[in-house]
């Protein structure tokens, strides 16, 4: 049985879900969630290891810049978010307004 997702993990999954199928960078996720880099990346790593999100290196919009790592939620992540929101009224309420 996998561990319950923390509130910060769910916050991050919700931010990824809000982005739909668009890839999002770490900086964007940090701004949306308010998570600091030292918290954000361990959570991203845990979610990636649990296959709740996808990641890839995206070529930058501006030439001459190196690729950046981007993330988006996958079906398993959406399912985990739905499962968690069943037990969390605040999450369920957020989902109702989407």
């Amino acid at each position: 049985m996998s561990r319950r997702l923390s509130s910060q993990s769910l916050l991050l999954l919700q931010a990824l879900a809000d982005g739909g199928s668009h890839w999002q960078y770490g900086l964007e996720l940090a701004r949306m969630t308010g998570l600091k880099s030292g918290t954000l990346y361990p959570i991203l790593i845990r979610l990636a290891e649990r296959d709740l999100l996808e990641s890839c290196w995206l070529e930058p919009e501006r030439s001459g810049r190196p690729p950046r790592h981007a993330y988006r939620i996958n079906a398993a992540g959406r399912s985990a978010l739905r499962e968690a929101s069943r037990g969390s009224p605040s999450l369920a309420l957020k989902g109702a307004f989407q």
């Binding site: 960078y25 770490g26 900086l27 880099s37 990346y41 991203l44 810049r65 190196p66 950046r68 790592h69």
Partner: peptide
């Protein structure tokens, strides 16, 4: 964790 460390650095460069 090396790929993630590079990912963190690339975001740092974009700040």
């Amino acid at each position: 964790r090396h790929e993630w460390a590079v990912a963190m650095q690339r975001e740092y460069d974009a700040l």
